[in-house]
Amino acid sequence: MNPTNALEVRELHKKYGDVTVLAGVDLDVPASGSIAILGPTGCGKSTLLRCIAGLEEPDRGSIRLGDRWLWQKSQSLQPSERNIAMVFQQPSLWPHLTVRHNISFAVSHLPHHEATERTHWAMNLLGVASLAHRHPAELSGGQARRVALARALAPQTPLLLLDEPLVNLDPDSRKATQEAIHIARKAHPATLLLVTHDRGEAEELCEGIWPFKAKAALNNSDR
């Protein structure tokens, strides 16, 4: 398989001191497909996501997106070079920047007019254009999530990682955010990898679910 946005993880290992968190994880996500990794809190599924994003260095194994090696023993791309977007458990919005600047920072490497266009596209898509001049401290929890999602979508990356994006949200905000993710995927069909402990959330947002076994290999056979 080699369409440009298919994700392939092979034999991924990660230890923190003596604690093995990932023990030979194998994972394939088809191009433009969506997979939810389901598992209890603290089982290592977020670590897997962070390794794919480049925020953690695996001990061994390999990660490939399309025909590009993101990480293998001889080469490692910096997070910003991997062309991946991620939404964290917390919105992690930069407090000193307005909503518009939070989103535009993600595309600030593009030519000015294109960056402005993408920023507006993402803000309109997620319905946060009216909040453009607010600072994160002035947003509700649901609004902050939508802004975080808009920030992740603006660069239109081939792979989108979502780390428990609906956790701690009230039912209305949860529903609104789910809708926003659907709209976003329709507008930009990126490969999606979702990490969650909530089966309902996984079923709602993804085509496939892989239960994550603590400290064990995650294989296609687990499907």
């Binding site: 994003a53 480049g54 925020l55 910096q78 997070p79 910003s80 070079e81 991997r82 991946i84 977007a85 991620m86 964290f88 917390q90 992690s92 930069w94 407090p95 000193h96 920047l97 920072f105 993600a106 595309v107 600030s108 490497h109 920030r151 660069p155």
Partner: peptide
């Protein structure tokens, strides 16, 4: 909060993330 810097590093190279985000927050 290191998570804020991590979020920035996903989108932009480290020097720009440091300049715009880390320095901005620590200003």
């Amino acid at each position: 909060d290191p998570a804020l810097l991590e979020a920035a590093r996903l989108f932009q190279p480290a020097p720009r993330a440091i300049r715009r985000i880390l320095l901005g927050i620590a200003a």
